[in-house]
Design a protein around this nucleic acid. Structure first.
Lengths: 137, 137
DNA sequence: TGACATATGCAACTTAGTTGCATTAGTATA
DNA sequence: TATACTAATGCAACTAAGTTGCATATGTCA
Protein backbone atom coordinates (compact mmCIF):
# COMPACT_ATOMS: atom_id res chain seq x y z
CA UNK A 1 0.00 0.00 0.00
CA UNK A 2 1.19 3.49 -0.81
CA UNK A 3 2.01 5.78 2.06
CA UNK A 4 -0.66 8.28 0.99
CA UNK A 5 -3.33 5.58 0.95
CA UNK A 6 -2.24 4.42 4.37
CA UNK A 7 -2.45 7.96 5.72
CA UNK A 8 -5.96 8.49 4.33
CA UNK A 9 -7.07 5.13 5.63
CA UNK A 10 -6.20 6.07 9.18
CA UNK A 11 -7.96 9.41 8.80
CA UNK A 12 -4.81 11.48 8.38
CA UNK A 13 -4.49 14.03 5.63
CA UNK A 14 -1.82 14.23 2.99
CA UNK A 15 -0.68 17.83 3.33
CA UNK A 16 2.31 19.61 1.81
CA UNK A 17 3.84 20.07 5.28
CA UNK A 18 3.50 16.38 6.08
CA UNK A 19 5.00 15.34 2.75
CA UNK A 20 7.92 17.70 3.07
CA UNK A 21 8.76 16.81 6.68
CA UNK A 22 8.65 13.10 5.93
CA UNK A 23 10.69 13.79 2.80
CA UNK A 24 13.36 15.68 4.74
CA UNK A 25 13.73 12.77 7.15
CA UNK A 26 13.83 10.19 4.38
CA UNK A 27 16.43 12.11 2.39
CA UNK A 28 18.75 12.73 5.33
CA UNK A 29 21.83 10.54 5.42
CA UNK A 30 21.77 10.54 9.22
CA UNK A 31 19.20 11.10 11.98
CA UNK A 32 17.90 14.66 11.70
CA UNK A 33 16.64 17.04 14.40
CA UNK A 34 13.49 19.19 14.41
CA UNK A 35 15.60 22.28 13.96
CA UNK A 36 17.56 20.79 11.07
CA UNK A 37 14.32 19.81 9.37
CA UNK A 38 13.14 23.41 9.70
CA UNK A 39 16.34 24.79 8.18
CA UNK A 40 16.24 22.31 5.34
CA UNK A 41 12.64 23.17 4.51
CA UNK A 42 13.41 26.90 4.44
CA UNK A 43 16.28 26.19 2.04
CA UNK A 44 13.88 24.20 -0.11
CA UNK A 45 11.63 27.26 -0.22
CA UNK A 46 8.93 25.68 1.91
CA UNK A 47 8.99 27.07 5.42
CA UNK A 48 7.00 25.17 8.04
CA UNK A 49 6.30 26.50 11.53
CA UNK A 50 8.26 24.76 14.28
CA UNK A 51 5.08 23.84 16.18
CA UNK A 52 3.93 21.97 13.10
CA UNK A 53 7.27 20.20 12.81
CA UNK A 54 7.17 19.04 16.44
CA UNK A 55 3.56 17.94 16.13
CA UNK A 56 4.27 16.13 12.91
CA UNK A 57 7.25 14.32 14.44
CA UNK A 58 4.99 13.20 17.27
CA UNK A 59 2.42 11.96 14.79
CA UNK A 60 4.91 10.12 12.59
CA UNK A 61 6.41 8.52 15.67
CA UNK A 62 3.10 7.17 16.96
CA UNK A 63 2.42 5.82 13.47
CA UNK A 64 5.82 4.11 13.56
CA UNK A 65 6.91 5.81 10.36
CA UNK A 66 9.89 7.37 12.09
CA UNK A 67 12.01 6.43 15.09
CA UNK A 68 13.44 8.75 17.73
CA UNK A 69 17.21 8.62 18.20
CA UNK A 70 19.11 10.21 21.06
CA UNK A 71 22.74 11.26 20.68
CA UNK A 72 22.66 12.67 24.23
CA UNK A 73 23.39 16.22 23.13
CA UNK A 74 20.08 17.72 24.15
CA UNK A 75 18.05 17.35 21.03
CA UNK A 76 16.10 14.46 19.63
CA UNK A 77 16.79 13.20 16.14
CA UNK A 78 14.65 11.12 13.83
CA UNK A 79 15.12 8.59 11.07
CA UNK A 80 12.75 6.63 8.87
CA UNK A 81 11.79 3.24 10.32
CA UNK A 82 12.03 1.75 6.84
CA UNK A 83 15.78 1.35 7.39
CA UNK A 84 15.19 -1.21 10.12
CA UNK A 85 16.46 -1.28 13.69
CA UNK A 86 20.13 -0.36 14.07
CA UNK A 87 22.55 1.61 16.18
CA UNK A 88 25.07 4.39 15.55
CA UNK A 89 28.55 5.55 16.45
CA UNK A 90 28.83 9.31 16.84
CA UNK A 91 32.16 11.11 16.47
CA UNK A 92 32.71 13.31 19.53
CA UNK A 93 34.92 15.65 17.53
CA UNK A 94 33.02 16.32 14.29
CA UNK A 95 29.55 14.91 14.99
CA UNK A 96 29.83 12.44 12.12
CA UNK A 97 27.64 9.36 12.28
CA UNK A 98 28.21 5.78 11.15
CA UNK A 99 25.54 3.11 11.18
CA UNK A 100 26.35 -0.08 13.05
CA UNK A 101 23.68 -2.53 12.06
CA UNK A 102 21.51 -4.19 14.67
CA UNK A 103 22.90 -5.67 17.87
CA UNK A 104 21.79 -9.31 17.98
CA UNK A 105 18.68 -9.77 20.11
CA UNK A 106 20.55 -12.65 21.68
CA UNK A 107 23.02 -10.23 23.30
CA UNK A 108 20.28 -8.09 24.69
CA UNK A 109 18.25 -11.05 25.93
CA UNK A 110 21.17 -12.81 27.54
CA UNK A 111 22.08 -9.65 29.30
CA UNK A 112 18.67 -8.57 30.47
CA UNK A 113 17.17 -11.96 31.31
CA UNK A 114 17.67 -11.60 35.03
CA UNK A 115 15.55 -8.46 35.26
CA UNK A 116 12.13 -8.43 36.88
CA UNK A 117 11.02 -5.93 34.26
CA UNK A 118 9.12 -6.60 31.06
CA UNK A 119 11.66 -5.06 28.69
CA UNK A 120 10.14 -3.38 25.64
CA UNK A 121 12.85 -1.11 24.25
CA UNK A 122 16.46 -0.24 24.49
CA UNK A 123 18.64 2.65 23.47
CA UNK A 124 22.22 1.89 22.47
CA UNK A 125 24.55 4.43 20.94
CA UNK A 126 28.33 4.49 20.74
CA UNK A 127 30.63 7.48 20.99
CA UNK A 128 34.21 7.87 19.82
CA UNK A 129 36.33 9.31 17.06
CA UNK A 130 35.86 8.81 13.34
CA UNK A 131 38.80 7.85 11.17
CA UNK A 132 39.74 11.33 10.06
CA UNK A 133 39.35 12.87 13.53
CA UNK A 134 41.63 10.15 14.97
CA UNK A 135 44.43 11.39 12.71
CA UNK A 136 44.09 14.99 13.81
CA UNK A 137 45.03 14.33 17.45
CA UNK B 1 43.45 8.33 49.79
CA UNK B 2 40.52 10.19 51.27
CA UNK B 3 38.27 12.08 48.91
CA UNK B 4 39.03 15.37 50.67
CA UNK B 5 42.78 14.83 50.29
CA UNK B 6 42.33 14.04 46.64
CA UNK B 7 40.32 17.21 46.13
CA UNK B 8 42.91 19.39 47.83
CA UNK B 9 45.69 17.70 45.90
CA UNK B 10 44.16 18.69 42.58
CA UNK B 11 43.66 22.24 43.83
CA UNK B 12 39.95 21.90 44.47
CA UNK B 13 38.41 23.11 47.70
CA UNK B 14 36.33 21.12 50.11
CA UNK B 15 33.30 23.34 50.50
CA UNK B 16 29.94 22.65 52.14
CA UNK B 17 28.20 22.87 48.75
CA UNK B 18 30.58 20.37 47.21
CA UNK B 19 30.21 17.96 50.11
CA UNK B 20 26.45 18.15 50.13
CA UNK B 21 26.05 17.74 46.37
CA UNK B 22 28.35 14.74 46.30
CA UNK B 23 26.53 13.42 49.36
CA UNK B 24 23.14 13.75 47.69
CA UNK B 25 24.36 11.77 44.69
CA UNK B 26 26.01 9.09 46.82
CA UNK B 27 22.93 8.64 49.00
CA UNK B 28 20.47 8.40 46.13
CA UNK B 29 19.28 4.89 45.37
CA UNK B 30 19.03 5.73 41.67
CA UNK B 31 20.56 8.27 39.28
CA UNK B 32 19.55 11.75 40.40
CA UNK B 33 18.97 14.93 38.37
CA UNK B 34 20.26 18.47 39.05
CA UNK B 35 16.78 19.55 40.02
CA UNK B 36 16.28 16.61 42.37
CA UNK B 37 19.60 17.38 44.03
CA UNK B 38 18.43 20.96 44.58
CA UNK B 39 15.14 19.84 46.13
CA UNK B 40 16.89 17.33 48.38
CA UNK B 41 19.35 19.96 49.61
CA UNK B 42 16.55 22.40 50.42
CA UNK B 43 14.83 19.64 52.41
CA UNK B 44 18.08 19.04 54.24
CA UNK B 45 18.10 22.72 55.15
CA UNK B 46 21.06 23.52 52.93
CA UNK B 47 19.93 25.35 49.81
CA UNK B 48 22.46 25.59 46.98
CA UNK B 49 21.98 27.77 43.91
CA UNK B 50 21.22 25.86 40.73
CA UNK B 51 24.18 27.42 38.90
CA UNK B 52 26.43 25.96 41.57
CA UNK B 53 24.79 22.57 41.22
CA UNK B 54 25.28 22.51 37.46
CA UNK B 55 28.87 23.70 37.75
CA UNK B 56 29.59 21.17 40.45
CA UNK B 57 28.14 18.35 38.38
CA UNK B 58 30.39 19.39 35.51
CA UNK B 59 33.39 19.40 37.83
CA UNK B 60 32.62 16.04 39.40
CA UNK B 61 32.10 14.58 35.95
CA UNK B 62 35.47 15.73 34.63
CA UNK B 63 37.07 14.33 37.78
CA UNK B 64 35.33 11.04 37.08
CA UNK B 65 33.70 11.02 40.49
CA UNK B 66 30.25 10.85 38.95
CA UNK B 67 28.85 9.52 35.70
CA UNK B 68 26.14 11.05 33.53
CA UNK B 69 23.15 8.84 32.81
CA UNK B 70 20.48 9.57 30.26
CA UNK B 71 16.96 8.16 30.62
CA UNK B 72 15.91 10.07 27.48
CA UNK B 73 13.33 12.17 29.30
CA UNK B 74 15.03 15.50 28.80
CA UNK B 75 17.16 15.76 31.90
CA UNK B 76 20.51 14.34 32.76
CA UNK B 77 20.97 12.22 35.85
CA UNK B 78 24.10 11.36 37.77
CA UNK B 79 25.40 8.52 39.87
CA UNK B 80 28.64 7.91 41.74
CA UNK B 81 31.27 6.15 39.66
CA UNK B 82 32.23 4.10 42.72
CA UNK B 83 29.40 1.69 41.87
CA UNK B 84 31.17 0.65 38.69
CA UNK B 85 29.90 0.60 35.11
CA UNK B 86 26.40 -0.77 34.74
CA UNK B 87 23.13 -0.21 32.94
CA UNK B 88 19.52 0.34 33.97
CA UNK B 89 15.96 -0.60 33.10
CA UNK B 90 13.50 2.24 33.50
CA UNK B 91 9.79 1.60 34.02
CA UNK B 92 7.83 3.64 31.48
CA UNK B 93 4.83 3.72 33.79
CA UNK B 94 6.18 4.67 37.21
CA UNK B 95 9.75 5.78 36.47
CA UNK B 96 11.19 3.09 38.71
CA UNK B 97 14.75 2.00 38.04
CA UNK B 98 16.48 -1.35 38.34
CA UNK B 99 20.20 -1.85 37.90
CA UNK B 100 21.29 -4.41 35.35
CA UNK B 101 24.97 -4.97 35.97
CA UNK B 102 27.47 -4.43 33.20
CA UNK B 103 27.03 -5.73 29.69
CA UNK B 104 30.09 -7.85 28.87
CA UNK B 105 32.72 -5.92 26.92
CA UNK B 106 32.82 -8.94 24.66
CA UNK B 107 29.28 -8.21 23.43
CA UNK B 108 30.12 -4.62 22.69
CA UNK B 109 33.40 -5.46 20.98
CA UNK B 110 31.94 -8.22 18.87
CA UNK B 111 29.20 -5.94 17.77
CA UNK B 112 31.24 -2.83 17.08
CA UNK B 113 34.38 -4.40 15.63
CA UNK B 114 33.49 -3.59 12.05
CA UNK B 115 33.34 0.15 12.67
CA UNK B 116 35.97 2.52 11.34
CA UNK B 117 35.58 4.56 14.52
CA UNK B 118 37.72 4.48 17.63
CA UNK B 119 34.94 3.67 20.09
CA UNK B 120 35.39 5.20 23.52
CA UNK B 121 31.98 5.08 25.17
CA UNK B 122 28.53 3.70 24.85
CA UNK B 123 25.16 4.43 26.33
CA UNK B 124 22.79 1.55 26.88
CA UNK B 125 19.52 1.83 28.76
CA UNK B 126 16.46 -0.38 28.69
CA UNK B 127 12.82 0.65 28.95
CA UNK B 128 9.83 -1.40 29.93
CA UNK B 129 7.42 -2.14 32.75
CA UNK B 130 8.37 -3.04 36.29
CA UNK B 131 6.71 -5.99 38.00
CA UNK B 132 3.99 -4.05 39.78
CA UNK B 133 3.15 -1.89 36.75
CA UNK B 134 2.81 -5.01 34.60
CA UNK B 135 -0.01 -6.19 36.85
CA UNK B 136 -1.93 -2.95 36.60
CA UNK B 137 -2.57 -3.22 32.84
C1' DT C 1 46.74 36.23 59.41
C1' DG C 2 46.67 37.64 54.76
C1' DA C 3 46.70 36.92 49.76
C1' DC C 4 44.87 34.73 46.06
C1' DA C 5 42.50 31.60 43.40
C1' DT C 6 38.50 28.82 43.63
C1' DA C 7 33.71 28.63 44.53
C1' DT C 8 29.25 30.81 44.94
C1' DG C 9 24.98 33.49 44.05
C1' DC C 10 22.30 36.28 41.29
C1' DA C 11 20.07 37.81 37.28
C1' DA C 12 19.62 37.57 32.76
C1' DC C 13 19.87 34.62 28.88
C1' DT C 14 19.58 30.49 25.57
C1' DT C 15 17.60 26.53 23.52
C1' DA C 16 14.41 22.75 22.83
C1' DG C 17 10.12 21.80 23.10
C1' DT C 18 4.91 22.73 24.49
C1' DT C 19 0.18 24.81 24.80
C1' DG C 20 -4.10 27.37 23.70
C1' DC C 21 -6.57 29.25 20.38
C1' DA C 22 -8.13 31.06 16.10
C1' DT C 23 -7.82 30.04 11.21
C1' DT C 24 -7.04 27.20 7.05
C1' DA C 25 -7.56 23.42 4.12
C1' DG C 26 -7.89 18.17 2.91
C1' DT C 27 -11.40 14.72 2.28
C1' DA C 28 -15.66 12.10 2.21
C1' DT C 29 -20.15 12.45 0.90
C1' DA C 30 -24.18 14.17 -0.96
C1' DT D 1 -18.81 20.15 -7.73
C1' DA D 2 -20.25 22.19 -3.40
C1' DT D 3 -20.47 21.50 1.44
C1' DA D 4 -19.41 20.41 5.95
C1' DC D 5 -16.54 18.30 9.09
C1' DT D 6 -12.34 17.63 11.31
C1' DA D 7 -7.45 17.43 10.86
C1' DA D 8 -3.69 20.41 10.27
C1' DT D 9 -1.43 24.81 10.66
C1' DG D 10 0.49 29.21 12.42
C1' DC D 11 1.22 32.38 15.90
C1' DA D 12 2.42 34.03 20.27
C1' DA D 13 3.25 33.15 24.65
C1' DC D 14 5.04 29.87 27.75
C1' DT D 15 7.95 26.14 30.24
C1' DA D 16 11.98 23.66 31.71
C1' DA D 17 16.80 22.57 31.58
C1' DG D 18 20.82 24.37 31.42
C1' DT D 19 24.40 28.43 30.60
C1' DT D 20 26.98 32.90 31.10
C1' DG D 21 29.02 37.15 33.04
C1' DC D 22 30.14 39.34 36.80
C1' DA D 23 30.61 40.75 41.51
C1' DT D 24 31.24 38.78 46.06
C1' DA D 25 32.54 35.32 49.44
C1' DT D 26 35.47 31.78 51.24
C1' DG D 27 38.89 27.77 51.52
C1' DT D 28 43.75 27.00 51.57
C1' DC D 29 48.59 27.55 51.79
C1' DA D 30 52.51 30.18 52.95
Amino acid sequence: MQLTDYLRKIGARVTPARRSILGAIAESSKPISADEIGVKLIKDGFEVNKTTIYRELEFLKTENLIREIDFLDGRKRYEATSYGHHHHVICKACGGVEELGSIPEYFINTFSRKSQFLIQDHNLEFFGLCQSCQKEV
